[in-house]
Design a protein around this nucleic acid. Sequence first.
DNA 1: TTTTGAGTTGTTCGA
DNA 2: GTCGAACAACTCAAA
Length: 494
Amino acid sequence: MSAPVLLWFRNDLRLDDHPALHAAAAGGRPIVAFFLLDDETPGPWRRGAASRWFLAGALESLAAAIAERGGRLILRRGPQSEVVPRIVRELGARSVFWSRRYEPWAVAADRALEAALRADGVEVSSFNAALGFEPFEIVQADGSPYKVYTPFSRAWARREAPPAPLPVPPGLRFAGPEGIASEPLESWELRPSRPDRAVGLRESWEPSEAGARALLDRFLGGPVWSYGRMRDFPGRAGVSRLSPHLAVGTIGPRRILAAVRARAAGEGRSEVEARPFVRQLIWRDFAYHTLFHFPDLPERALRAEFHGFPWRGNAVGLRAWRRGRTGYPIVDAGMRELWRTGWMHNRVRMIVGSFLTKDLLIPWQEGERWFWDTLVDADLANNATGWQWVAGCGIEAAPYFRIFNPVLQARKFDPDGAYVRRWVPELARLPDAFLHAPWEAPADVLAAAGVRLGETYPRPLVDHAAARARALEAFETLRAGARLDLQPRPRSSA
DNA sequence: TTTTGAGTTGTTCGA
DNA sequence: GTCGAACAACTCAAA
């Protein structure tokens, strides 16, 4: 048998729209499918618990698709710098194909791995499976990266559309290599077992290509056209929920873009109607662009004046926030949705993020960490971009005075209380007028609804008005400090 | 090189 | 109840 080629699956766990798979298949040699669980190379950003659960399902489904095509998905664990060269040697492969990643740890590790393999005479080919355009494809005339979303998105849109997604190669077959060991998926313990925290995850997600396709079809069946109007209402099914699939690659952005375009054409609609949704996909590219060009993004505020921000360590507040027991119903609803389903509506992510960083003055990195562990869509670029945005320390500077009022936000975006009642059932019987601010309810209204503040539901952890004033004060010290930096006290000349 | 217009997602206050 | 202005100053992108 001729030397096989190695197809290394990463965050691209699909057969559709897979450029590396196409290139591997084009050579006519046997394709060995391989997945590596690498908890060492990413350092602190190894996969979190919820995304591990999603990964397990995606791997099972991919393995089944490969088995249908005569092959076997080889599973190994360990650092990529050791395990990839080892499996290449075991197979006697002369070529390796993979999809590029853009996290700082991955960029460095991939570069080193590629050099090592080439030194052994192994050919390496890498592809873009994750983005519309890669971070180095959209830069300014002088080669520097964009730092503002709008000009980036205009540059993105000026280009020809990203290449059309590739179908599954016709007649695709995989090799089922003899004598090559594969670790049992169960031995990785990707799914929580004791206790079984995954009940809500199973209810919420189908982690497979088919699951992604079903969500996409539902979304294209209507919500995509009203996305601009409906996306802010967490109680309605107005968003695609494709984020965990994009994160692990059970669907790719180019497939989504092409499907939106095809559906618009088929229904005689203008693509303009889908633009608010497409903008979100461009935002996703921009997050990767930002992470690639500013590798500190997950760890450090990009705006240097924030390095001296007077955050407050607050273990009690952080714990209440995580558990969804802050006393602000919209915040608690979001945090409980996250814990239960591994996902949170984006509008609510902003509200809980603002509450953590502005009302509690807890460092945004604490929120980023918690999201990393609990989100099925955990994605380094998107998560870090979102947290820096909400904290106001990213390159997209949110004005310092943009502090979300959790009650106003709730009344505006959950007017009928559907979202809060679902996730905070102990308040469900409160009338709409008091649902989002139960501490304002008269005693008889609380009693009639079966609510005892401080017992069945917490009192507010902080008073928002006071917390807002405190946050503005903290920002004031920041500005004073920045001015001092610019104008050091002149030396005495007397 | 200089100038100019603009910048995802908010809140509050006063007319 | 609705509306516009104020809330800072700065950096970025493009002309």
